[in-house]
Design a protein around this nucleic acid. Structure first.
Lengths: 214, 214
DNA sequence: CCATAATGGATAGCTCAACTATCCAAAAGA
DNA sequence: TCTTTTGGATAGTTGAGCTATCCATTATGG
């Protein structure tokens, strides 16, 4: 297909597609002439993937390029590569928060990891990220206590089991990484939205009053 | 204290504080002269709150202003106000995603809510949000099945119970709304980061190989 | 008490990300 | 043939989130 069709079928304006081509988010089409090119279903899929990661997942163009580079990497999908890819998907909008966690926060994360028997090294990216988030709670004047942390940890453990189960169902090995990225990034948004629904329900359950509030 | 001290104690540049004052994220200080004003601990707390919500929570300035307006609203903290405040904290980075969910996605959300016995009306904001996220999975070529949805729902139910428990511990009624906002917004980031750790652990648990990968 | 420095507020400017518009030569279609 | 469309290159636009400048006033040190 040509770019116009790619645009129509994906709902993305042609100039935006050209921009993605320039930025390396989308591979070039197959050249059929000096000023002509063809695009296939693969391009359409990739384009829809990019839109999902940016629009719903909230990733920046630069972040999308980074993870797609890994997804396209030719090396086999080993546990290491999977781990490295997931690790770099920091959910903080900017990603490069220069807020440094204090010693006390890092220590709490270390203790949590030990309590949960998590096999993650203290050098792992999300390890430091978690310390920073816990520090942010404290600085905002609303610290989280260890009980809540443990409860949250138990919840994400079951989430992670579902995540890994979903990946094991995938037979095409070259789709595993892409699926892991999509399910992790969009899954963050899904869990956040679902949490609002559950909060809403739990709040209604605890409130004795009539609640016909939309 | 004066603005210079407010800046130093919060780690925020003076021009940024002035910007927040203009944007209504921070109340004006108490005027002590035609070109002088005093700021108190309340301003410092509020400033740190703003930084946490933007830097770590990923909220836009406009979104922060909206939720702070509700936090500052003089009406008592009823269940309705709490629900309305939490409802409007859409986690999607932009918030105003114009991607429309299809009928099939909305129907799946309706069925999920029924299976879980959630007391949320179909007109609630997160209801439509969830349909949109599920649609995004499908369009990206990696649909979620109902089994995963149910498992995620069970996980967020326990998260929501922890959330509401934390709120019940708060005695100062005028702090409940602020705490709900902070715990919800920063909690999204915390859960996402913790999920990475749990994925990392679960992956290591399932992989027979040696994994000294950072 | 006077000179100097700092302050709060208003206004305008800057920077970056994410597009969007224009142009052009070549190719496609009528 | 001749009009339209295409892909690619280049430059321009928009909005968010700061940042810099200016000025009258106020604090402050000698």
């Amino acid at each position: 297909m040509r770019m116009a069709q790619l645009s129509e079928r994906s709902g993305t304006p042609v100039p935006t597609i050209k921009y993605y081509l320039r930025e390396g988010l989308l591979p070039r089409g197959e050249r059929t002439g000096r000023t002509q090119a063809r695009y296939g279903e693969h391009h359409l899929r990739r384009l829809r993937l990019v839109r999902a990661l940016t629009d719903v997942g909230g990733l920046s163009i630069a972040a999308v390029r980074e993870v797609l580079d890994k997804v396209d990497s030719p090396e086999p999908t080993t546990h290491q590569l999977l781990g490295r890819t997931l690790r770099d998907l920091t959910p903080t909008a900017s990603g490069d928060v220069d807020v440094q966690a204090e010693e006390v926060d890092t220590e709490r994360v270390r203790a949590l990891v030990e309590r949960r028997n998590w096999r993650v090294p203290a050098e792992a990216r999300p390890f430091a990220d978690l310390a920073e988030v816990i520090a942010a709670f404290r600085r905002a004047g609303h610290p989280v206590d260890d009980t809540a942390l443990d409860d949250y940890a138990a919840a994400v453990e079951s989430v992670a089991r579902v995540d890994l189960d979903s990946l094991e169902e995938i037979t095409e090995t070259d789709e595993i990484l892409e699926s892991a990225v999509v399910r992790t990034v969009l899954g963050d948004t899904l869990l956040a939205v679902m949490r609002r629904l559950a909060q809403f329900d739990e709040s209604a359950r605890r409130s004795p009053a009539t609640d016909d509030d939309c």
